[in-house]
């Protein structure tokens, strides 16, 4: 359904420098640098997938989203989405997609949300019955009933984001692009947004591509991860594959009756220690978890014990490290 092949894109950026003398000099000559934002990006996404698109700031995530949503034309390469080339048949193509830019609003700032929805209905020429059905579904599942009459500028960030997502789904898009949908939201709002994304993906088969810095989003939502760094695609695969790649690590958290000395164990790193709790990290190919537990119960009176895998955050950091970005 989505197929990118060898996409390249570079920008010319004017260099700005500090200081009065430099500023005066820049009046006459200005230096430019070419920034390669995307380098030979290729991937395919099938219908119904939720793909997490991750990478450090400035890696090219937003640029890719812009290329895929028809805002930018790449220097070369092909991109076929739903049979369209986004930047060529813009008007016909964008009818099929919904886009949320987490840092910007698509709602009209000073009017009640419902008026913005009404205008979007006309922009997308949504038939009456479809509009009302969608509106009912969205207000119900995103709990918007109480806020649709409020002007956008009076909404909290979490409320606004829910409205943004609703706004981008009014016209039944087949693909939903979410650029940092959870940025700046509190825990409850994040969970609500995630649940909703999951739900429309399941119930309506909407393909979702989301960029985020919050690895919990990825863990909760994405079946598949694309990682980009310095404009190059570095990883394409499932979260589980990534886990098994760095997966021989385990974290053991142990609670015990007061014990005033740290318990060192050979071949295991102690991440933190207190008189009541310690956290150890180990490589199970070197030291099996069982032997660690055995050693621990010899020394302290174990109250509770938890074995966990490496958090996604650290996996991603490992990946970044591996590619030196």
């Amino acid at each position: 359904m989505i197929a990118l092949q060898g996409i390249n894109k570079s920008f010319k950026v004017a260099r700005r420098t500090a200081g009065v003398r430099q500023a005066v000099k820049a009046l006459f000559a200005r230096e430019h640098t070419i920034v390669e934002a995307l380098h030979n990006i290729s991937f395919e996404i099938s219908p119904g997938e939720i793909v997490g698109y991750i990478g450090p700031n400035g890696a090219g995530k937003s640029t890719t989203i812009k290329v895929m949503s028809g805002i930018l034309v790449p220097d070369n390469g092909t991109c076929k989405i739903l049979g369209y080339t986004p930047w060529q048949d813009r008007a016909a193509y964008v009818r099929n997609i919904g886009v949320v830019f987490g840092q910007r609003t698509q709602l009209w700032w000073d009017v009640p949300v419902i008026d913005s929805f009404g205008l979007l209905r006309d922009i997308y020429k949504i038939p009456g019955d479809v509009y009302h059905a969608n509106l009912a579904m969205l207000t119900e599942s995103l709990a918007l009933t109480d806020i649709v009459q409020t002007p956008v500028r009076q909404l909290s960030l979490g409320q606004r984001m829910r409205c943004e997502i609703a706004a981008s789904l009014l016209h039944d898009p087949k693909i939903l692009f979410l650029d940092e949908p959870t940025i700046g939201l509190d825990a409850a709002s994040k969970i609500a947004v995630r649940q909703f994304i999951k739900r429309i993906n399941k119930e309506r088969g909407v393909t979702v591509i989301l960029t985020t810095h919050d690895m919990n989003d990825i863990e909760a939502l994405a079946d598949r991860i694309l990682m980009i760094g310095k404009g190059t695609l570095l990883y394409d695969g499932t979260l589980n594959d990534l886990r098994s790649r760095f997966g021989s690590k385990r974290i053991v958290t142990v609670d015990y009756r007061e014990h005033y000395e740290p318990v060192p164990i050979d071949g295991v790193t102690c991440l933190s220690w207190s008189p009541e709790r310690a956290v150890y990290s180990m490589d199970i190919e070197v030291t099996p978890v069982a032997s660690v537990i055995a050693r621990l119960s010899e020394q302290v009176e174990v109250v509770d014990l938890e074995v966990g895998t490496t958090p996604v955050e650290e996996l991603v950091l490992e990946l970044y490290k591996e590619h030196r970005i």
Binding site: V24, L27, R30
Partner: peptide
């Protein structure tokens, strides 16, 4: 004052 002044100078085209 200085900050403003420098940023004002940056806009060469605007000045012309």
């Amino acid at each position: 004052w200085k900050l403003r002044f420098v940023s004002g100078l940056q806009y060469r085209t605007a000045a012309i």
